[in-house]
Design a binder for these strands. Structure first.
Lengths: 257, 257
DNA sequence: ACTGTGGAATGAACGCCGTTCTCTAATAGA
DNA sequence: TCTATTAGAGAACGGCGTTCATTCCACAGT
C-alpha cells in the first residue's frame, strides 16, 4: 500500500480533520441553535449558522433533525423544561395563574426573539400536553365552568406570547435604530407620542405619559390582572356557602399584586 | 402631432411589446400580493410570485417598493381601509369593544394567513394611529382609568391577532394533512383528545367535548367577553350617579372624525 | 489481527429566495 | 427632431433549506 506516501497535491487529504470528538445529538444541535439565536437573532438563525457553531457540515444536522421547522419545534419544547406548575389550589388559583403567566414571559425573555419561535409552536404536542393540562386544572380548580376554562387558555396564552412578541419586536427596532439603551428608546417613543397633534390623536397624547411611565413589567401584570378579573367573574359560586365568601358575579374585589 | 393616427403596420417593430398598458403602482403591487397570498399562502408569497402575477420583472417591483418588508407593511395597513370605528359611546363601550374585536378578526380572515402578516406590523404607524386612538377613546369613554386603557389595548389586540394566528395555523395544518373540511379536521382532533390517557391528562380529556362542540366564533366571543368583564371591573364609578350624565373627568366625550 | 459492514459526517450541488446592477427602450420636454 | 429621464427587463450575486453520492470510522464477526 502507498499509505505513507505524500498525498498527491490534486487529491484532497484523506483524513482531513479531527473526527467529531463529541457525537452530534439533537440536544447539542438545539443548544447550538440557541447560541446562534442569542447572538444573531431570529432572522439570522439558519441551518448553516447552527452547523458552523458546532464546527460541522450543514448536512450533518439532517441526520438528527429532519428540517428547520423540526429544529424550531425542538427549541419550542425546550422552553418547557423544568417548568414545574404547581398543584392546583382552589383557594389561590388567581395567584397561580398570574405566576404561570409571569413565568411564561420570563421564559420567553430568556432567549432573544424566543417569542418568534414560540408563536407557531404546536401547543398540543406530546411534550407540552402536560402543561396545558395543568393550567386547565388550575382554572377548573378555581371554579371556572369548563367552556370558560377552555377559552381562558386561549386568552392567557395569546396574551403571554403576543406581549412577549411585541416586546421582542420593539427590541429589534431599538437595535436597528441604533438606540443603545431601552431608556433612550423609551424617551424617543414618549416624545414621539407627545408631539402628535392633540386634535387628531387626543387619547394617544393623553395616554403618552402613563403608557411610558410604567415599565413593561407593570403593563404585563396589569394585562394579566385584567384577564384574571374577567375570569373570576365567571367563577360559579356552587358551594362555598359560608365564611370567607368572595365577591359577587361580575366584579371581584381585589387580589395580591 | 401624429398621436391620434393609427400606428403604421410596418413600423410595428417600433413598439414591439405592449408598453406596460397599466402603469405599475404600489396599489397594484399590493393587490397582486394579496392574490398570491390567497392562492399560495404566506410561505409561498415572494417577490417573484408577485411579479409573475403582474406579468412583470421582479426588479420592476423595487421601483415602487423598497423591500419585501415594506410590501408586507403596505399589506398590513391595507387591512385598515374603510374601517369605520364608531364614535365612542360611554353607554355602550362593551358592545363597541366587542364589535371592534369581531371586525378585527373578520378582517384577518378575509385573506389567507393574514394574521402572519399582521403580527409584525407596526401598530403605531401613521396610517394606523387613528384607529389606535379611536379604540383608546372607546375605553376611556367607558370609564377605564388611563393606565388600564393602555393595557386594555395590549390585551385586546394580542388576543385578536393571536387567536386569528392560531386559527390560520390550524387551517394550514388541516390543508397539509389532507383533511378536506374543517368538520373532518375537528372530528379528528376531538378524537385525539378523547383518546388521551385520562389519568395523565384528566382536564384535557374532560374538556375535549366542550372545546370542540363550540365553534371558533363562540370561543372567540367568549374570550372577548372574558376580557371585557375584566376591563369592566376597573371602571371607575366616579359620578354617573344617575340619569343622563356623561362620564366624568377622565373620559372626554367625543371628537370629530 | 483482519476484514466487512453500517451509520455518521462530508462537500458539492440543486433550486429557490431577496436584492442589485446594467442596459434597453419608450416617453416627455425643448 | 433631438435629448434627458425613467420604468422596466434581464442577468447576476450571495445566501438559504435541502438532497445526494461519497468517504470515513468504529466496531462485530471470523
Amino acid at each position: 500500500m502507498n499509505d505513507e506516501l505524500p498525498a498527491l497535491p490534486w487529491e484532497r487529504s484523506r483524513r482531513r480533520t479531527a473526527p467529531a470528538r463529541i457525537p452530534l445529538t439533537r440536544d447539542r444541535i438545539v443548544d447550538a441553535a440557541y447560541v446562534v439565536l442569542d447572538r444573531e437573532g431570529y432572522e439570522k438563525l439558519g441551518m448553516r449558522q447552527v452547523a458552523a457553531e458546532l464546527g460541522v457540515a450543514v448536512s450533518a444536522l439532517y441526520s438528527h433533525v429532519s428540517s428547520k421547522d423540526e429544529l424550531f419545534e425542538l427549541m419550542y419544547v425546550r422552553m418547557f423544561d423544568d417548568w414545574d406548575l404547581p398543584e392546583p389550589d382552589p383557594e389561590h388559583w388567581r395567584e397561580q395563574v398570574a405566576e404561570y403567566a409571569r413565568d411564561g414571559r420570563a421564559r420567553l425573555h430568556k432567549h432573544r426573539d424566543m417569542a418568534r419561535i414560540s408563536m407557531g409552536g404546536i401547543p398540543f404536542g406530546p411534550e407540552t400536553l402536560p402543561y396545558m393540562d395543568r393550567i386547565l386544572g388550575i382554572f377548573r380548580a378555581g371554579g371556572l365552568p369548563d367552556r370558560v376554562a377552555g377559552a381562558a387558555g386561549d386568552v392567557i396564552s395569546t396574551f403571554i406570547d403576543g406581549f412577549a412578541l411585541e416586546e421582542s419586536m420593539w427590541e429589534t427596532r431599538r437595535r436597528e435604530s441604533g438606540q443603545n439603551s431601552w431608556a433612550e428608546m423609551r424617551e424617543t417613543l414618549e416624545r414621539y407620542f407627545e408631539e402628535l397633534p392633540p386634535d387628531r390623536f387626543p387619547h394617544l397624547v393623553a395616554l403618552s405619559n402613563t403608557m411610558f411611565e410604567n415599565s413593561n413589567d407593570d403593563r404585563f401584570d396589569l394585562g394579566i390582572e385584567i384577564i384574571i378579573r374577567g375570569l373570576a367573574s365567571f367563577v360559579e359560586e356552587v358551594e362555598k356557602t359560608e365564611a370567607g365568601g368572595s365577591s359577587g358575579t361580575s366584579a371581584p374585589e381585589d387580589e395580591r399584586p
